[in-house]
Simulated scan of single mutants.
Amino acid sequence: MKYPEFRALEDRNGGSKADDLLTASITAFCCIARPARSDAQQLEDLAVPLLALASPRVRRHAAAALSEIPHAPKRLILALAEDDIDISATLLLRSPLLTPKDLIDIITHKGISHARVIARRRSDDPQLLGVLRSFKDTAIDNALEIKSHFDLDDDAPIDDAAVAPESPRLRETREALKALMRDAALSDEGTLANHLVDAALLDETMSFERELAIALNLDVETARKITGHGLNAELTIALASLGLSAEAAHLVLTGLFGLVHKDLRSLRLFIQSYRQIDRDKAQATVDRWKTAENSEKLRQKLREMAEDYEDGRRRVS
């Protein structure tokens, strides 16, 4: 992207809408197939000053969108990596631009919350591992132990559930926070959207499935089938039934599956098609999923009753 194109984005937003400008510039950069060094420099010059003005939601989007791009501006990546953990987590886990020295500096500046995420990242750098072990933290030690059983050159993902056994105190704190969030006004669509976006961007698929199940009033197993392993119609319909905006839905999909719309045309098509989904029809589809769930539960109960009856007859005979 050339400098005049960045200027056009800035002019179109009047120079005052930091969220719109940052989102547009990040999206435009991600759509360039082979960005030149000057493109990265122009994005850095434009985006870094906007971070202080942008909302956490948009900074999360920026971190997720840039998390796997090897030619992203380094200064922008470092700035996002030192943001709050719910914003920086995807970068800390995935960004190929963050060197062991960068990660050590981030841990020094930000402390244990960032260290716990970095511990799940694959690295055999002895200095970084030494810094992580120096915390003597159970979650960090468990993450490092799990990683030691994997070939560092293997791309297989680390199981979140295996990496994060929780201490009783941490578990109690987490459950208390969940209770507070459930007691909050989840009927408010903005709150619900932010809640689901956070769960998706924190790179915890199992957590997202649980939260989606609660929001849809479905079983977790059904939510797991809906989520699937990539962009699919069922998940899109589920998000639409909850009233999520196209932007929030895109953030959820990005957090779960990476950059699912890698060019501007596919992003536009997604937004257009998503906005055409009728919410009432989407809710009717979710209701059918719930009916199917209940039917399966009833069939299972009848099977169990029949088995009990047959067992009783055999004992009598």
Rank of each mutant, 00 (worst) to 15 (best):
A139G: 04
R7V: 15
K147G: 14
N217T: 10
V117Y: 06
A33H: 09
T254D: 15
S88F: 05
D263I: 07
L269M: 10
A119E: 07
S95N: 13
E166R: 07
E247V: 06
H149A: 14
A185S: 14
L78F: 07
L244E: 02
L53N: 07
P70Q: 08
L298K: 06
R279E: 13
A179D: 11
T291G: 12
D141W: 05
A292P: 04
I32R: 03
L132V: 02
L170T: 14
A139N: 12
P56R: 01
L256F: 11
A64D: 10
A249G: 07
A184Y: 13
A8N: 10
D105K: 05
A185E: 12
A156P: 00
S123V: 01
A249W: 03
L132P: 03
L103Q: 01
V220M: 08
A248M: 12
D137P: 00
H109V: 09
R57D: 15
A200N: 02
H250V: 04
P100N: 02
M181C: 06
R174Y: 13
P73A: 09
V58K: 05
Q42V: 08
L93V: 05
K262W: 06
T222F: 09
M1P: 05
V117Q: 14
H195S: 13
T222I: 15
A143L: 11
I107H: 06
L128Q: 01
T108W: 10
E307V: 02
T291C: 02
P70M: 03
L22S: 00
E310C: 00
P56K: 00
E304Q: 10
F29H: 01
S25L: 06
A52C: 07
N194V: 09
K281Q: 14
R122W: 05
R94L: 07
V260T: 09
V117P: 03
P73H: 07
S123L: 07
L202D: 14
T90F: 01
H229A: 07
I69H: 12
A213C: 13
L256Q: 14
L53S: 12
E293F: 01
G243E: 02
D83V: 00
K290F: 04
G15D: 08
I106D: 00
L76F: 05
L231C: 04
A164T: 09
L98D: 01
A233K: 15
L239Y: 05
A52L: 09
R122E: 14
D125C: 05
L66M: 11
E211V: 09
Y274M: 10
I32C: 04
P96R: 04
I237S: 12
A249Q: 00
S25W: 02
A156M: 05
A200V: 02
H261T: 12
V260L: 06
G14R: 06
H114R: 06
F208I: 03
R133K: 03
V220T: 11
E211M: 11
T285V: 12
D155F: 03
L269D: 12
R174P: 03
F135G: 03
K74P: 04
L9V: 13
R313H: 11
E10H: 02
I214N: 06
N13I: 04
I118H: 08
A62G: 09
M305I: 14
G258Q: 01
E204F: 08
A63E: 08
V286D: 01
L196R: 03
S207E: 07
I106H: 06
A47D: 09
E221M: 05
E307W: 08
E307I: 03
L76V: 00
V316P: 01
